[in-house]
Amino acid sequence: MTGKRSLVSIVDDDESVRESLPDLLRLSGFAAEAFSSAEAFLASDVVSETGCLLLDIAMPGMSGPDLQEELARRRQKIPIVFITGLIDGSVRPRLLARGAVECLIKPFSEAALLDAVRAALRRPYSGQVTAP
């Protein structure tokens, strides 16, 4: 099972994000695809190819953290970079403790985003969740 997981999947219900992020990522040399909901991502066929998940937190239906749990259940330990507009200070540490690679607060800089994506893609895909 050593398929190259190089896809960056973006799951966010916000249109601006879905439109702007893939372009930036592609320009930086990454493959990127965007989904409007967690359910849409799960229903897609690129889950196993995803090496990094850019995940919004607050979404209608299944939320970001819900998707994180669901993927863990399915033993799809995809490295996750949360992106959120929420400014609740307690959110970030919690998510990191649960295994997220990073949690970025919108608006974030390109540099921060790209760093987080690279870190995620570098994660050894042994299925182990290690603390960063």
């Binding site: 916000d14 601006s16 994000v17 439109e19 702007s20 992020l21 372009d23 930036l24 320009l27 992106i83 507009g85 607060i105 919108k106 608006p107 974030f108 800089s109 390109e110 985003l113």
Partner: peptide, 13 residues
């Protein structure tokens, strides 16, 4: 923040 984020990202792009 949603649109702001979009603006910044798009501008960068």
């Amino acid at each position: 923040n949603q649109p702001l984020s979009g603006i910044i990202t798009n501008a960068g792009t």
